Computed example of a mutant assay.
Amino acid sequence: MTVLRPRPRHPYLDHPAPLAFAHRGGAADGLENTALAFRHAVERGYRYLETDVHATSDGRLVAFHDATLDRVTDSSGRIGALPWRAVRQARVAGREPLPLFEELLEEFPEARWNVDVKAEAALRPLLALLRRTGAWDRVCVGSFSEARAGRAQQLAGGRLATSLGTRGVAGLRLRSYGRSLPLDRLLGAAVRRSAVCVQVPERHAGLRVVDRLFLRAARQLGFQVHVWTVNDAARMADLLDLGVDGIMTDHIDTLRDVLTARGAWT
């Protein structure tokens, strides 16, 4: 089946769809958001990598999902309250250190990064890093906070790619049902200017988010639709049949196998 996809709105999306995202580098083996996990994903052919960022108390930008170290490392404490010299001692699964996001940008120069800004304190250090490295075309910023995504767009001056936040997704869902409210009211004016994609779960709170109506509404506005976090091969195939533009997964070998079988692994 031929899928008519929107023209990419930003160089970040300059790659044949469907896009394959290694979620936290491929979190299935328990080494999420480590340089080793991202290295394995890149070795398997992944070009798009998903991560999260927090800022330490001294402003260093760490690639890590949780606000605290407790769940996946042998250390404890809130990252935002600790200096980098303390955070760098932590080991994921007792083995792997936490990387700075700047180190990841440098080690994987061909990779594109989907970055969830988990805390307000991480926003300005991230934008400063993108300015210093000129990595605007390699990063798409997401956040559940519509206000934070809007501030990111305003501070970046239009160079930054973002995904819609919670308000924008809800507005797009309403639009898909035929609601004719003004776009800036539905999606948020600042976010709509910089948004290039919609990144959503297949279902939320028992309700289906991604269906043909939602995809059509997104495409009418030029947004790609990326679905997270899909780990089952059958669900991956169903979503690809539906026409989604990208899938994020913890099980990177499974997604690669599904796309290879369909002649869509690039």
Rank of each mutant, 00 (worst) to 15 (best):
D58R: 06
L49Y: 03
G45N: 09
S57W: 03
E43C: 00
T34D: 11
L31N: 08
S57D: 09
A41C: 01
A35D: 03
D58S: 07
G30Y: 07
T51G: 15
F21I: 14
E50I: 11
T34R: 07
H23C: 12
H23D: 06
Y46D: 01
P18Y: 00
D58P: 11
F21A: 04
A27S: 15
G25P: 05
H23A: 11
A37H: 07
R47N: 03
S57G: 12
F21H: 15
L49N: 12
Y46I: 03
H23E: 03
A37L: 10
D29F: 05
L31I: 03
H40R: 15
R24Q: 06
A28S: 14
T56D: 12
G30H: 07
N33P: 08
F38E: 08
A37T: 07
V42H: 05
V42W: 06
P18K: 00
A55V: 11
D52F: 13
A41I: 01
R39E: 15
R47P: 00
G25A: 04
L61H: 10
A55E: 13
F21P: 04
T56I: 12
H54K: 04
R24D: 01
L31Y: 10
A55F: 05
R60S: 13
V42A: 14
H40T: 13
D52C: 09
V42Q: 10
A20W: 03
R39D: 15
A20H: 08
E50M: 12
T56Q: 11
A17G: 02
F21T: 07
A20R: 10
Y48W: 10
A28W: 02
N33L: 11
A28L: 07
S57E: 13
N33G: 05
G45K: 09
F38K: 10
R60T: 12
T34G: 12
D29T: 05
D52E: 13
A37I: 05
A37D: 07
N33E: 06
A41S: 03
Y48S: 01
Y48D: 01
A20L: 10
H23Y: 01
P18D: 01
A55Q: 15
E50A: 05
R39Y: 01
R47H: 14
A28I: 14
E50N: 05
E43S: 12
Y46W: 04
L31C: 01
